[in-house]
Design a binder for these strands. Sequence first.
DNA 1: CGTTGCTGTCTAAACGTTTCGCAGTATTAA
DNA 2: TTAATACTGCGAAACGTTTAGACAGCAACG
Lengths: 349, 349
Amino acid sequence: MTYTMRDVARLAGVSIATVSAVLTGKKRVSDELRGRIEEAMRALDYHPDQVARSLKSGSTNMVGMVIPDVTNPFFTELMQGAEEEARRAGMSVMLCNTDGDSAIEHRHLDTLLAHRVDGILLSCADSFTPWERLERRKVPFVFFDRLPVGFKGAAVALDNKAAAAEATRFLISLGHRRIAIIAGSQNVSPGIARLEGFREAMEAAHLAVRDQYVRCGDFSIEGGYTSGLDLIGLPTPPTAILSCNNKMTLGLMRAMAEKKAPCPGAISVIGFDDFEWSANFSPRLTTVGQPTRAMGRKAMEMLLDQINGHQTSPGIVIFPSGLNIRDSTAPPGEMPSEWTSSLPARSPA
Amino acid sequence: MTYTMRDVARLAGVSIATVSAVLTGKKRVSDELRGRIEEAMRALDYHPDQVARSLKSGSTNMVGMVIPDVTNPFFTELMQGAEEEARRAGMSVMLCNTDGDSAIEHRHLDTLLAHRVDGILLSCADSFTPWERLERRKVPFVFFDRLPVGFKGAAVALDNKAAAAEATRFLISLGHRRIAIIAGSQNVSPGIARLEGFREAMEAAHLAVRDQYVRCGDFSIEGGYTSGLDLIGLPTPPTAILSCNNKMTLGLMRAMAEKKAPCPGAISVIGFDDFEWSANFSPRLTTVGQPTRAMGRKAMEMLLDQINGHQTSPGIVIFPSGLNIRDSTAPPGEMPSEWTSSLPARSPA
DNA sequence: CGTTGCTGTCTAAACGTTTCGCAGTATTAA
DNA sequence: TTAATACTGCGAAACGTTTAGACAGCAACG
């Protein structure tokens, strides 16, 4: 049996309005009554019902966060930042995982709206993310990382074009000429912008972007793997590859290990998204890092501003990237006729 | 402006009770009225308010899931399994991350209870997890992975003792005698049971468990790192190390790389928790794998059973582990006086 | 001493649903 | 024909809060 305000009021000999007053703290209550009420709450082990409170007050103190892949540390680090900020404001975060499936995303959004969350943070599954619906329903929301094409509202993102261009220029500066890219889904902003940055940097260096060097890996391990196999199998394979997210990089490295293509011996690799395991990869990965936690915090901060009606300038907040140079990149070598034995020795014999 | 059942009822020319009837589907409604009502709902773009519904019906169709580390793929894979199962039952999952901090865990539990979730899945931050409180409040709950010591209720866990013993026996079978363990927190079940399994396997083989070979890494990267440094720095270092979770293994590998201790040349490593990146580590990691998704599904299934009052036998469901033998384990070699140059070559020169 | 204003408490009406019990009406049995 | 029996739909009372407005007590003021 769980007690209500009514029980507390009766025990303390006051009206429920007074109990509510001490609970919300919005009205003054005499010390005597406050004491009696707090005493009664303790005696009954009373806990307010957030559901009833939400119904009446119209706000749930919950925000929804929708991400495409909960097993990707990139997104969960963003979530940590966001939650940190939310906690400070007394809000809790309801995390929803879409697995990149827009049908699931749709259902999650429905559920969040049905539960009357105060706001939504989302990184969309594809370009069809129905954000017009969110606007129509007048719920505050902020996109992060993956925005739908053409979206102009509140959002947080990396300077994807500059990041890809920087990574590409780094490869060029090492001496690479045949550079390939495993791009992400072209339905969402990072996929598009990173490819653009790559193209621009290549053109600026007067290097050709060959069609067969541009692959789409859909941000998945599988996509990175098959793209990797394709590129390695080309008559003239690239000497360097830019991979546009961590999962695809993982797939690419698997493909290279399987085909015994040494990295960076035969092919240099640079991947988007730095994460805890990057430095323990074989070889240690050169990556484009993102300030994930800060981005999560900022997105939540913007959302809370909207929720609280602080009309700040909506728009896209851009974060800078950083290049982490490690061992997966090197100047291009001569092309070995056979790729063998260049994997780490199994034991120092 | 958002519409309510009242508006739908008025537009369709029926009572709100009838609208509710078609919504819940628990009562029969004539085809004619049903048609008019559905039409009206569509016209107004009506969406039921889950908050109000929860208040009246007493159930929120939400379950809470509390985990110690949202950036650990082990837990998020469990979450995927759990969510899959929840979705099938029309429930949504509210994920809470404690960062292993029991104060935060406490707050999360409060929030979940306040929001009147229908049930809670949790992996505890430490042994002080207040599960008596959950029992007192009569909310269904199921522990997974990390249970508090002495807990006897519904739970899902790995057969930790057997898993640790198997891993240890494998190292012994390779010829190792000086085997160390980086154990997890001794406040929670996996930490304790894995150490126990290690001890039993060692004793069964009549091998000594030296005190200085038993380190506690608290399930963190940092803990694995410092434990690793300690072990490597010992006058007589071990020839093999069993690391009790993925984060500590990562820390250990960092320590070894830093100290230029070749793996498996000088020290073999076997780590708990297999995950996507394991096979791309340097070297490819030998691991104790867990059926994470299945465990997540099972935990949720048990929770839903409790919620729906299907009184199944509560108790602990144990899952078996699997050994993934890769390149981080090998027979012990002679001990090199100096550990150098055995890391993967930076480039094939 | 009657206003006025302030304080602290209470009463009662919401918030948007679900659901119980009842009232019509149509169907069937006698 | 009447009585019993479905079957639909409706009115109204909850669920546990918040909050506007009423009101009583009291100090300060002219």
